[in-house]
């Protein structure tokens, strides 16, 4: 474990806590894409089911349990508890256009053609694009609550921090995971636009608003 990865994971943890805090305090899931959240549940379940048969560490185990359970809890909050505050008419990105190609990619690119490995690859590819419905929604509405932008910033920071982590591991441990690295680079690139507005507006105390 290096500091990049530790802070990356902590940032990921923070992003989920920020999202939960936003939903609980505003008693609303306005501005949050249900599709993105549902894709994250798919990602976590597909990747972390190994927690039942592969022991890595207590840290790894607890994080996996937290990510699976919190993402399912968020779906519950959106679909049941605060259902009236969720407006599906602006959450229009076609998630099936993401899932389909990721299945195909996972069947082609994997480290071993076994069910758990293909599932693992699928989760890596899907995670890299799971944020698209959320970013698309932001683009469509052209604005976001500040707390929602903090959520996205923490999530983007988590991805960005994994890149120096891989570089570090390549040199210190001699290991490289090309599938995770390529998917991770794509995923981080998707945040570039968002981060530009976040740094130039939100962190200067202005509202997150996209030019018309």
């Amino acid at each position: 474990m290096n500091l990049f990865r530790l802070f990356g994971d902590l940032s990921h943890l923070a992003s989920i806590l920020i999202l939960l805090h936003k939903i609980q305090t505003t008693r609303s899931c306005r501005g949050i894409s249900f599709k993105t959240q549902a894709l994250y549940v798919t990602v976590f379940v597909a990747r972390y089911l190994d927690l039942f048969y592969d022991w890595v560490s207590l840290y790894n185990f607890s994080m996996k349990v937290f990510f699976i359970s919190s993402s399912i809890y968020i779906l519950y909050l959106m679909k049941v508890r605060f259902r009236p505050t969720h407006d599906p008419s602006i959450d229009t990105f076609r998630a099936e256009y993401l899932v389909g190609p990721c299945v195909v990619l996972a069947l082609i690119f994997n480290y071993k053609f076994t069910f758990p490995e293909v599932l693992w690859s699928f989760s890596i590819f899907l995670e890299s694009v799971a944020i698209l419905p959320q970013l698309f929604m932001l683009q469509r509405t052209g604005e976001a609550e500040t707390i929602t932008t903090h959520y996205l910033a923490a999530l983007g920071a988590y991805r960005a921090l994994y890149i120096p982590n891989w570089i570090y591991r390549y040199f210190s441990e001699g290991v490289v995971d090309p599938i995770a690295v390529i998917a991770g680079l794509v995923q981080t690139a998707l945040y570039v636009d968002f981060f530009y507005v976040y740094f130039t507006k939100v962190l200067q105390g202005q509202k997150f608003e996209l030019p018309a």
Binding site: S57, N60, W120, Y170, G174, D177, I179, A180
Partner: peptide, 10 residues
């Protein structure tokens, strides 16, 4: 260099 999945990552 070892290529493969880093299963200790989240």
């Amino acid at each position: 260099r070892v290529r493969g999945p880093l299963k200790d990552e989240l």
